[in-house]
Design a protein around this nucleic acid. Structure first.
Lengths: 117, 117
DNA sequence: CAAACACTCAAACGTCTGCTTGAGTGTATG
DNA sequence: CATACACTCAAGCAGACGTTTGAGTGTTTG
């Protein structure tokens, strides 16, 4: 019974308090990154977004380009629209999607060139 | 019974065959991006990786910086190690992790600057 | 050698994801 | 007005994910 059952968890700033103190505010400001990057963290969805960064496309084209069914493409486009990464316009019974945010382009290119390193 | 039950699914190259043909090989080469980006698609894990891009840290420090328990930090570090994004060295009973791939730095910075736009 | 400590491992959990299926909406065409 | 068609929506499912908990390693220290 001399065995203690508690703190196997390291207390804060246990080893290198200086570095921790320095990095904490910087890293803390990165909250919400995951939510954004999650949009790119799926093969199909990244392909959709990259394709739209190259050309305006209707849902049907998007499905063909990325090799998905139309409902699947529609599902991903809706997700991307809801997070503001993609916008669309109607033309008759077609719906044309395009990249909504030019600031996303460098991110897409950075990832693409990392992949082909 | 004149109701047809089948192909509600659009055939390939249904609308703009030219654009589709042009984009398909480019986009097809992006296979596997999701697997990579998944490593960055979590708040905790992105913070871990970004912190390590700034400084070499032991597990304990990482946990303190990102505000997680030690097992949680260990879990994410293992994932990052298995995908080659992170490397480590032992020093006594401490384990120091660091960014393994310099090519990842531009990706991290691109995402970070997108976040603070 | 025994205690303390940084870290790892494995099991278990609640939750979320991406896709399919089938029905529904609205626009164009004959 | 009826049919065709591009697209959306909602329900459901199998698989993956992040975290906690508790036990276990291996190194250091007295």
């Amino acid at each position: 019974m001399g065995k203690q059952t508690n703190p196997p968890i390291c207390e804060i700033e246990c080893i290198h308090a200086d570095k921790v103190d320095e990095l904490q505010p910087i890293v803390g400001a990165l909250g919400g990154v995951g939510e954004l990057v999650t949009n790119l963290a799926d093969d199909t969805r990244f392909k959709v977004l990259y394709a739209l960064s190259q050309s305006e496309l209707c849902v049907c084209d998007v499905a063909a380009v990325v090799g998905a069914t139309t409902p699947a493409a529609s599902y991903h486009l809706r997700l991307l629209y809801r997070t503001g990464l993609v916008d669309y316009r109607r033309d008759g019974r077609l719906v044309y999607y395009r990249l909504a945010d030019e600031d996303m382009r460098p991110v897409l290119e950075a990832i693409k060139s990392y992949m082909s390193r």
